[in-house]
């Protein structure tokens, strides 16, 4: 039996959501690692874009930043930030891949602050970066959230940084965002969600091995939808783990080295 950590499992489950011959714009950390793993396994033609201007690099190893040298290593284009936003806006980017601090049932993401006074935040986080742009403009938004708990999966986020389905069905379109866009998957340390097509509420689709539907319900601060058949995610293969540790993150920046 393969021994793996939960962050390795999340990365593998996330990678499997990315189809070959599609394109993705990624945020820092696990989203980058997931896109790299997808490219190294089932999706060799996955086009990876970075907001600082890297298009289709041959990533030698995990970048520290979405703008560092690795993001233009043997790239097909090194361009500008606004050019990447324009490329997404024009409909060439299928997936935005993001993380955040809090999320609600409609997939609205908070990466700006904790607290109720914008001017004096209890905790100030980085803000949107390119996340709001990605989540507004890309066809589908995929989200990775670790530490699945009622504090992070909340009825109402302290600050909507990046739009999910906002107030529910039709709300994005009502505000003037592109039609046919919005979050499609949320990968957590307990499970995989998709979104109920009718209500646009997060829907439990697959649990991780050893996790029950009840575990997910208890860890979530809002009422989730549950798919008719909830499957179980396949654990990482030995080959997945080898790629994660030897190719993607040999220095253990996000996947601590095995002792």
């Amino acid at each position: 039996m393969t021994i793996y950590t939960v962050s390795e499992l999340m990365c593998v489950v996330a990678a499997r959501q990315l189809e070959d011959n599609k394109s993705v714009a990624v945020g820092t950390g696990l989203p980058m690692a997931a896109a790299m793993l997808a490219q190294q396994t089932h999706a060799p033609n996955l086009l990876i874009n970075f907001e600082a201007g890297g298009v289709a690099p041959q990533l030698p190893t995990l970048p520290i930043s979405v703008g560092d040298s690795r993001t233009i290593h043997k790239a097909l284009m090194a361009t500008t930030l606004v050019d990447i936003m324009d490329i997404i806006s024009r409909g060439y980017v299928d997936y935005a891949f993001l993380g955040g601090a809090q999320i609600d049932k409609y997939g609205n993401l908070n990466s700006t602050m904790i607290g109720d006074n914008y001017n004096i935040p209890k905790v100030r986080f980085p803000g949107s970066g390119g996340a709001n742009d990605f989540g507004s403009l890309a066809w589908e938004t995929m989200i990775i959230m670790d530490r699945h708990s009622p504090r992070r999966f909340v009825e109402k986020v302290d600050f909507i940084t990046t739009p999910g389905y906002l107030d529910g069905p039709g709300s994005r379109e009502e505000w003037g965002l592109f039609e046919g866009t919005g979050p499609s998957r949320v990968i957590t340390d307990l499970c995989l969600f998709d979104f109920d097509p009718k209500t646009k509420v997060m829907r439990l689709s697959q649990t991780h091995p050893g996790i029950s539907i009840d575990d997910v319900k208890k860890a979530t601060g809002f009422e989730i939808k549950i798919a008719d058949e909830v499957g179980v995610n396949e654990p990482p293969t030995e080959e997945d783990l080898r790629i994660l540790h030897e190719v993607i993150d040999p220095n253990g920046m996000i996947f601590p080295k095995k002792v």
């Binding site: 820092t28 100030r124 986080f125 390119g130």
Partner: peptide
């Protein structure tokens, strides 16, 4: 005018910026 501050991406959050922003 903030698009992205406080974070050092993979390296985590900045104490200096948090203190100054959180003090108002």
């Amino acid at each position: 005018e903030i698009a992205y501050v406080v974070g050092f991406e993979l390296r985590g959050l900045s104490g200096v910026q948090r203190r100054q922003f959180e003090s108002g």
